[in-house]
Amino acid sequence: MTIPNIVGAGLIVIGAGLGIGRIGGQAMEAIARQPEASGKIQTAMLIAAALIEGIGFAALFAA
């Protein structure tokens, strides 16, 4: 692993982490606001997080 690769991987992790963190945070807020819709919010959250994760992994393997 070369230095640019490592830096790139780090950037990807930061980006994906921020993205997933934001999704999680927003989902928490949404659940707090509407606890009765928590099931739907959770599903949507997992899907969104999974999509970001997928892109993140793809980039990570490219790096």
Partner: peptide, 8 residues
């Protein structure tokens, strides 16, 4: 879509 599944 399936690629992200397998990688994940």
């Amino acid at each position: 879509k399936p690629f992200s599944l397998l990688i994940r």
